[in-house]
Design a protein around this nucleic acid. Structure first.
Length: 310
DNA sequence: CGTCCAGGTCTAC
DNA sequence: GGTAGACCTGGACGC
């Protein structure tokens, strides 16, 4: 089944679909996949009333994106739920026009107004936190290994999914992750010391002691960015970096992600050997609640090649 | 082969 | 409140 959706945000701002697909490395982590060659994005989504489904998203007729639901045909109900999940993941409901107004006045970032800044997002806050923990203190390859193992061995499969491998599987529920023993995290995911963090996190969410999803739903007037940051950092294995990373995925852009990749990358782009955190913060202070997003886009501009001159 | 460290965090001073 | 050291893993380096 195929469904079209307009590439226009709530504020009338344009949406650059490809830039969204490669907005962040999480798009390369199961249950997501980016196909650079075919210029498409796939993700297996969990659905409330049925088995997971894998969807393929690509550009469609001019001005539209197109969603293809793979596997056997779906009914109207499932199609609707799937599209809702896609809209969430692509952040189609987010109004970026206020951010674009500020970026337009900044020569280094005016390019974003063509449709950048929609950070691809996971279905749940739980999934964001787990992935963030899996990026800490390790190389990217290790992050892929850990997340792939979680999805492959603990995720529910969509109809028609291959018997083995991560393809066609949704991200595991907290219950599924809580049910895996510490041995799984050590020997299969090879998560090292993070295994205990992941298990603890999954248990506390599965047992209802921690409510992560409300952090995703609440607006800044209900729960401040500072409060969200504090609650995230209260979780096992989540410190300043992982909290800032998770918050960007929640659309809480006030904190900047300052880590061993962003710092040198910023310095390189500014043609400096080193730049102090305070100087970086000052540079992006003008963006207010969008500071972290502005910083991220500044760093990742070259992730998408500039369009050829007309 | 040992050492370092990668998109950090926790604990103990 | 600020700062060393330890911590799993595995790939990149220097010897």
């Amino acid at each position: 089944m195929r469904l079209d959706f307009p590439l226009v945000g709530p504020g009338g701002e344009p949406i650059d679909l490809w830039r969204t697909f490669v907005s962040h490395g999480v798009a390369e982590l199961p249950p997501m996949r980016v196909d650079e060659e075919a210029r498409l994005f796939e993700v297996t989504v969990s659905l409330p009333a049925s088995r997971p489904r894998t969807v393929r998203i690509a550009s469609g007729r001019p001005g539209f994106g197109q969603v293809t639901i793979l596997g056997r045909p779906v009914g109207a109900r499932t199609a609707g739920e799937t599209m809702k999940a896609v809209a969430h993941i692509l952040r189609l409901d987010e109004d970026l026009s206020a951010f674009y107004e500020r970026a337009a006045a900044d020569p280094d970032l005016s390019w974003v107004t063509a449709g950048a800044g929609r950070m691809i997002r996971s279905q749940t806050v739980f999934e964001e936190v787990v992935k963030s923990i899996c990026t800490t203190n390790c190389a990217w390859g290790a992050t892929i290994r850990m997340v792939t193992a979680l999805v492959e061995h603990l995720g529910a499969s969509a109809p028609g999914a291959p018997a083995t491998g991560p393809a066609g599987r949704a991200f595991p529920t907290p219950e599924a992750m809580a049910g895996a023993g510490l041995g799984f995290y050590r020997d299969v995911a090879r998560a090292g010391y993070r295994g205990a963090y992941l298990l603890q996190l999954a248990e506390s969410v599965a047992e209802g002691r921690v409510d992560l999803e409300s952090l995703g739903r609440a607006g800044p007037e209900e729960i401040s960015d500072e409060e969200v940051s504090a609650r995230l950092q209260a979780l096992p294995g989540v410190g300043p970096y992982a909290a800032a990373h998770t918050m960007m995925m929640l659309g809480r852009y006030s904190p900047l992600i300052l880590d061993s990749w962003t710092r040198p990358t910023y310095a390189r782009l500014r043609r400096r050997k080193e730049v102090k955190d305070s100087a970086i913060l000052r540079r992006f202070r003008r963006y207010g609640r969008y500071a972290g997003l502005a910083f991220w886009l500044f760093l990742t501009r070259d992730w998408v090649e500039a369009p050829p001159p007309a």
